[in-house]
Amino acid sequence: MKKRKIMPYLFISPFFILYLIFGLYPAVSGVFLSFQDKAGQFTFANYQNVFADARFHKAISNAFFYMLGSMFIILPLALGAALMLNSRYMERKRGFVSTVFFMPNVTSVVVVGIVFKLVLRTNNGLLNIMLDTVSGGRLGPIKFLKDPDWALFSLLIIGTWKFFGVNSLYFLSGIQGIPSELGEAARIDGASRWKEFRYITLPLLKPIAKFITFICIVGSFSIFGEVLTLVGNSNAVGARDSMLYPMVYLYNLMFKNVKMNQAAAMGYVIAVILLLITGVQRWLFRDKE
């Protein structure tokens, strides 16, 4: 009898043991670290430094820009692609197209970074060659990765390529979960395609849209590998810090500037910002009576 009670706990214990060691302990230890100076004395200075740091503000604003870009560029495109995939014309090709859509998501971030560096570079970059050909030489080479005004968009281009496909598959799964009777009933009642989409498909996609926007928000604040590969092993994170993102800055602060305590404080500030944003997101996606 006693054995039977212990066994379930034993089965689930590996996860909790690993979580305690590699999840909870570092998190709690990080809190202590963030409130200590180099000598181990209690201080608020690390948080004060983070809040007063102009580069941190820049990193957060870059992440916000990317987040908005993800929501208003990548997600609408993904939704459009999902609707297209769901159409009866695509029925026989759906498997193949879905696989193609999913491939960027499983491509190593390092490979993505290296390839896009070749695509986006100023001299003989693939995109610049294409623009030059299309415009008949009228469009001069664009400094996609060097010009701060372009660097943000360049990262969005990479993000679109990498995440558009998988998000469209999420949307597709949501669309396929909507009972077909609802659409049929609406059409019998004379609803147009647009009205069917606006009043049936879109509201019923809310749960999946909530999940996808959450992923977008977290992803925007977690950009790391792409930037690190694009800038290489250098101190440069784009002109005017145009490619400085929260995780990149946190990493640089910890390992390049060796400001461990401040980096810990920054980690917690980022976590709180993310909590606030997701709180707003949950409120916007709340079920209305």
Partner: peptide
């Protein structure tokens, strides 16, 4: 040195 190089890079484009 890291701070110097970071600031150099940050402003080099301008």
């Amino acid at each position: 040195k890291t701070t110097f190089m970071e600031t150099f890079s940050m402003n080099a484009f301008d």
